[in-house]
């Protein structure tokens, strides 16, 4: 089971939509994947606690993160969406 941490400023509107899209994409590609949402200020702590496989964020993140961080804005705008999806799938298939 893969785990993706989804972060945005308030962990309310945008991260919920992005998290659902990621779950849907993972399912379509036969990848078992869970998402956990976090507020930007809690994201680093959650990263340390949960050891996710990747972080997708719609906000800037602070702290020393050594896993892939993907800008989730494409899931909202549709701009460069396919390359973002490809990037995510590649990480989740590892």
């Amino acid at each position: 089971m893969k785990l993706v941490l989804v972060a945005c400023g308030t962990a309310l509107a945008t991260s919920t939509v992005v998290a659902k899209k990621i779950e849907q994409i993972a399912q379509e590609n036969g990848i078992e994947c869970q998402t956990v949402q976090a507020k930007a200020v809690d994201a680093f702590t959650k990263y340390q606690e949960l050891h996710p496989d990747a972080i997708v964020c719609t906000c800037q993140l602070e702290g020393d993160i050594d896993i892939p961080v993907i800008n989730g804005r494409a899931f909202l705008t549709g701009i460069n969406l396919q390359s973002t999806i490809d990037q995510l799938i590649e990480i989740l298939k590892k």
Binding site: C8, T10, Q60, R73, L76, T77, G78, I79
Partner: peptide, 12 residues
């Protein structure tokens, strides 16, 4: 305040 720290503009 949130907009200042975590802006929400999208370049559509």
């Amino acid at each position: 305040e949130r907009e200042r720290i975590f802006p929400t503009g999208l370049p559509t």
